[in-house]
Design a protein around this nucleic acid. Structure first.
Lengths: 348, 348
DNA sequence: TTGTACGCGTTATCAG
DNA sequence: CTGATAACGCGTACAA
């Protein structure tokens, strides 16, 4: 099993010094054409490539960015990764992925693993557990060691760093306004518990839209789901609660759900109760997923432009990494990505 | 902006040598308890962690595995990554992700980027373009440089390495047999062009099932889709072709589709033509996706156990990396992951 | 018990 | 034009 060839080996074979080989390969003017040709030919023959690790050690930068997300089997996060990867590769960086699996402990461990020299900076979205525990010491510690962080989607004001977020508030508000314009008189909200910041903002958007239209929010129309449960259990409970909601509020003619799954469940339950979509009930969801597009009827959703978020986050991070002015006062920015309402068959 | 603390800095502060610090931190018996305590306390205070890059250079191994997939916004590949990540982390490895985006050139570039010392081995699934061009030199070159590769799902016999594959043939065969047992007399197949090996195997499974039941395969019931097109165009063309298929073969009472999207499209078209599922037509798809589960009616599918594939691939790779016996003759294995038929509402 | 020297692979600097 | 040396950060064999 051969090893990769190194400068040293080339030098030995050609009976020159290591530094001569190094210079010859970089086409230095210091080296004679003869030597250059000889070295380059040999290097090409043996397919020489500089060892990244050695370069990283020398340059004190790895040209690798770490991305930590709560879960990869989610369209939204996959798309963000794709965006990050796209920009990163274009700018000469690799991407290393860590999954927190929504666990605080795994998030911390993963960050520690990567922070010890493997990467130059982080792009991350916090786990639900971290949001719940409100323990952000690992972020602040990482940053105090000179490693920049860009957070996306699930962010928190207690951590001072660059951020890329969805305009959850206005996305939700516009969605609900759409329902109102479509003559819905009694609009239900299916959301998560408030500790997930995005859920909270979407809830606020819902309330704001109602108020602007002089409609009075009714607490019995707001369903807050506990999403910390196991997926299967969660799903079952979800449908039961939605059914309960519909049954106790027969006047409901519109539903805004803070994610795709809730929206689909609402449609499923509605159909089960013999309600027609969109004639009896109109439904709008939130997210970029495939489910919405291929559902029956296809679901009107608020698109988050996940890939674009990934791209922006990557640009933000790499810009910071490559900015020479370490001295310059730290200026953190928060990019807000506008949402877009994609109208499909679940609304009129 | 502080830098991470190093052995050298600790040594200077404490006025001892670097190696003393190193030994003290590893609790060497050579060092006096006094010194150990002093050093360890200091290191803890400043949160010292050995630099991974330096270790990688020294140990000539990075404890990182590279995974290259054609596309990340696909449930199947996301799940594989999750499986790889799970096992890798458990065994002390990181995972670095590269996307080929189904392009041969990007696959080659990505591999070259990672092969130069960044990782210890590859887990990958080939791009469609690579399969079409049948150019595998980059795999063989990588392996000849001592970097092991484990391929999964899309493999090819021309490359000699460890492999993890789905039992596509039997998965398809069993699915079609299920349709036959359910009294389907005229079963259509919606598949891809043959260069995608998995599509080919699934087609063979379909044919075998028919033959075993003494049913005669009819070419007009087999629809081969060109999936090299742009997604949107593809989708539109797909539905048109399926509609054509159904219209010219009204006797069709069963459909086996080699992926989720084709199956869903078949259901959509069937519904459009006023056919009831599963009473008029029964449908089975192939894959692990979310679409099947949340479709209406929910889709019976052949599950591929993607996460398990990722786990097996990671174990295979790490075992190889950690086996001392470089001398031992190379023995490559191919793991076949059995499929599982998940019955839902689209079949009786 | 502590320290010195070396090597991992590379490049930059300086001496020849 | 070429080569020796140092440095990136670490661990370890060996010397003191």
């Amino acid at each position: 099993m051969k090893r990769k060839i190194t400068l040293k080996q080339i030098a030995r074979e050609l009976d020159v010094s290591i530094s001569t080989v190094s210079k010859a390969l970089r086409n230095s003017v210091e080296i004679s054409d003869d030597t250059k040709q000889k070295v380059q030919a040999f290097a090409k023959l043996y397919n020489y490539r500089p060892n990244n690790i050695a370069l990283s050690l020398k340059n004190r930068r790895t040209n690798t960015i770490g991305i930590i997300i709560p879960e990869i089997v989610h369209h939204f996060f996959s798309k963000v990764i794709r965006g990050v990867e796209l920009v990163a590769n274009k700018r000469g960086y690799n991407v290393i992925v860590g999954l927190s699996n929504e666990s605080f402990a795994k998030e911390v461990i993963n960050m520690e693993m990567l922070a010890n020299g493997s990467i130059d900076g982080f792009i991350l979205s916090m786990s639900k557990e971290t949001l719940q525990q409100q323990d952000y010491h690992h972020f602040n510690e990482t940053m105090s060691q000179g490693m920049p962080i860009v957070m996306f989607d699930r962010v928190v004001s207690d951590v001072n760093c660059d951020k890329v977020i969805v305009d959850d508030f206005n996305g939700a508000k516009n969605a609900v306004k759409k329902l109102i314009n479509n003559k819905c008189k009694s609009i239900a909200l299916i959301t998560t518990k408030d500790y997930v910041s995005v859920g909270k903002l979407r809830t606020q958007g819902y309330l704001e839209a109602l108020e602007e239209s002089k409609m009075i929010p009714q607490s019995e129309l707001i369903l807050k789901i506990d999403d910390s449960l196991d997926y299967e259990v969660h799903l079952e409970k979800l449908e039961a609660e939605i059914e309960q909601l519909f049954k106790s509020n027969e006047k409901i003619d519109g539903v805004f759900a803070v994610n795709e799954l809730y929206a689909l469940s609402a449609m499923k339950v509605a159909r089960k109760l013999g309600l027609d979509i969109p004639n009896d009930i109109q439904v709008i969801g939130f997210t970029d997923g495939v489910l919405s597009k291929h559902a029956t009827p296809s679901l009107t959703t608020v698109s988050q432009h996940a890939q674009q978020m990934g791209e922006k986050a990557a640009d933000l991070l790499i810009n910071k990494l490559e900015s020479e002015n370490d001295e310059e006062e730290e200026r953190f920015q928060t990019l807000v990505i506008p949402t877009e309402l994609i109208e499909r068959e679940s609304t009129k």
